[in-house]
């Protein structure tokens, strides 16, 4: 565990918990793509199938459980919470996300580290995470709504990506034979898509600020 990896995990955790708390406190999920959140829940469930087979550390197990539980809690709130669900932008969140799931699974069948159920699902979760932000990007472009997607969520999610890339560079330089072809390539794609998301978020945020000029 190096400092970049720890910072990456902490900012990732903060981004998810902040979104959950924000939704719960304001009782609104306006501007949040449920499809993106469902994809993240699928990502964690399929990546952490090794919870039951491999023990790495208490930290590792604890973080996996928290990630699965918090992402499921966000999805639960958006689907079933009697107040929160009413603010969901259903008609704007129309991205065909089954296409992403299918494409990621197909790629995982072709490119994986070992042909086993666990390893194919692990690769699938890595590819799906890389593109999971797309429904949120589309929703943001359509609604221009940045009320609920707080600056902090966007900031911490971006910091998580940046720290993980620094972590891989650090491990590549310090550990003999360290390579992460699948995670590394997907990580770069994910960061590029995130940069696009950030760009639109910033434009949207700027435009909203302009609209708030006193009449």
């Amino acid at each position: 565990m190096n400092v970049f990896r720890l910072a990456g995990d902490m900012t990732h955790l903060l981004s998810i918990l902040l979104l959950l708390l924000k939704i719960y406190a304001t009782k609104s999920c306006s501007g949040v793509s449920r499809k993106t959140q469902e994809l993240y829940a699928i990502v964690f469930i399929f990546r952490y199938l090794d919870l039951f087979t491999d023990f790495i550390s208490v930290y590792n197990t604890f973080m996996k459980v928290v990630f699965i539980a918090s992402s499921l809690a966000i999805v639960w709130c958006m689907r079933f919470h009697p107040v929160v669900r009413r603010s969901y932008d259903r008609e704007l969140d129309t991205f065909r996300y089954f296409f992403l799931v299918g494409a990621s699974f197909a790629l995982a069948l072709i490119w994986h580290e070992k042909f086993s159920v666990q390893e194919v699902f692990w690769a699938f979760s890595i590819y799906l995470e890389a593109v999971a932000i797309l429904p949120q990007l589309v929703l943001l472009q359509r609604s221009g709504n940045v009320d609920n997607l707080t600056g902090q969520y966007v900031f911490f999610l971006g910091a998580y990506r940046a720290f993980y890339i620094l972590n891989w560079i650090y491990r590549y330089l310090t550990e003999p034979r360290f390579t992460r072809w699948i995670a590394g390539t997907s990580g770069v794609v994910q960061t590029a898509l995130y940069a696009d998301f950030f760009y639109y978020y910033f434009i949207s945020w700027k435009n909203n600020s302009k609209l708030k000029l006193p009449a």
């Binding site: 990896r5 995990d9 990732h12 990546r47 090794d50 491999d54 790495i56 590792n60 973080m63 996996k64 990630f67 580290e113 070992k114 692990w122 993980y164 972590n167 995670a183």
Partner: peptide
């Protein structure tokens, strides 16, 4: 398990 790489990152 021997021979299998464990995914130590989250």
């Amino acid at each position: 398990p021997l021979g299998q790489r464990i995914h130590d990152e989250l």
